[in-house]
Design a protein around this nucleic acid. Sequence first.
RNA 1: CGGGGCGUAGCGCAGCCUGGUAGCGCACUUGGUUCGGGACCAAGGGGUCGCAGGUUCAAAUCCUGUCGCCCCGACCA
Length: 517
Amino acid sequence: MSNASNANAGAGGKPKTAVTPTRADNYQEWYQQVIAAADLAENSPVRGCMVIKPWGYALWENIQHVLDGMFKATGHSNAYFPLFIPVSFLEKEAAHVEGFAKECAVVTHHRLELKDGKLVPAGELEEPLIVRPTSETIIGASFAKWVKSYRDLPLLINQWANVVRWEMRTRLFLRTAEFLWQEGHTAHATAPEAVDETMKMLGVYADFAENYMAMPVIPGEKTAGERFPGAVQTFSIEAMMQDHKALQAGTSHFLGQNFAKASDIKFLDDKNVLGHAWTTSWGVSTRLVGGLIMTHADDDGMICPPRLAPKHVVIMPIARKPEDRVKVLESANALAAELRAQLYDGTGVRVELDDRDIQGKRWHWVKKGVPLRIEIGLRDIEAGTVSLERRDQDTSAKTAIPRAELVATVGAILTAMQANLLARARAYQTENTRVIDTKEEFYAYFAEPAKKNANDPTPIHGGFALAHFNGDPALETKIKEDLKVTVRCVPLAPGEPGTCPFTGQPSAKRVVWAKSY
RNA sequence: CGGGGCGUAGCGCAGCCUGGUAGCGCACUUGGUUCGGGACCAAGGGGUCGCAGGUUCAAAUCCUGUCGCCCCGACCA
């Protein structure tokens, strides 16, 4: 489609990068090409919905596995609630209606009949059902039944599910009409307990993002305009993508008693006083896979952080002559077994042995982002070494390492790579974050570079701006209109008071401004 | 939902203006030569040109409609 997509192919040479276009050439197109090159997902016949392919789904499964453990370690239990929600449930919370009604898929019939060779809906439902865009209301109905006494609290529930939001514009992983997520829903006897829960889960997300995804995040509170519909307070973790935009990677909401009142979640406290429970909800979605891509992937494709990688190591036997093949394969299989017996991150090292007799294997795995690539051939066997390549290093960097040393240190190498990816991402975020104290500098920072053509993708520019803000929603709206920049969050980390550069009024602390996904 | 662009083989594209046998590169299959940094040669397979109408002797090409994708907005956790 674009000229950029084949700009560095052709001309008799090999592509300089495994993925075209590069990030700098066309970031949006690059993102899609990485997904295709790594075989993570593809568009489906259904508008806005994606097919998550095995490699992409394996990343999600690893995300699920780790988070599920974290939720259980913090006292939560999994349960499952219906996909369908009666429309009347949504109506119960006014702000919620406003927030979600426009993007609800609605089921109005329950039967199909054949008419003139076509199936047409029949059997209209008395009350339409919406396909859940989020489950506060349907889970609230259950909570109302489950909670009678302060002894029933706190109620700490999580659900792994799919949800549907009929979005105008979709992007694989980042915003799809249907997506997979988890939604935690809890009820508490007091406001402070619910706030504690809200903050605890935000902390779990921040921990997961940094320590598993190797994606540095800024935890903070959303401004009123960005608040979850119906929430009293919304908190998020915000990550910087390689186009300098912010990705909201997880949210945690303190819902006050809004949903408890809407769903009638009432209990008798220890003084025999009837009151409404205090609830929270929090979630992360398959969007995290998009975050992983845009945090780590490069112009050669995906880079999987070791702790979430579907495979840690791929072994590629080098033996094209049939007479060598048996010996090399035997050695490669033995190496695979030795590596699988090693522990990394509390589990056996995940090893793929790719013995396909094809060309281009190496690039295949580069694009998929397997952390370690190992080549083993006759020369290695004789020397007692293997050839090791790390995906976080240049694709031309290959080191011979004694086989026994590799087996002994594979866990340490993966640990080092995980740390390197985080450090690299953190440095990137720091480099593209600026403390700004004047309106002029702020506007210049976010000004879009000139485009050759009005319909070209917007070049990478700007970043995170740390600037004071008087908190006025009207000012935030004005800045959004001017620059498409919004307050991503008011960081939880302590900050100094100062002066709002836009109004000259006092400001409690600097907030994070950026363009966002 | 508004503006723009694009739908031709798995992927990337040419052909369309000026209607007349469906093309190229990569990928794939087979054979051979290669092989430790994206191999080469040869022979093959694969497309009702997004879909539906219309004009025409004849439509990938012209006209109308429609669906989808992408970009820029609007919208949005």
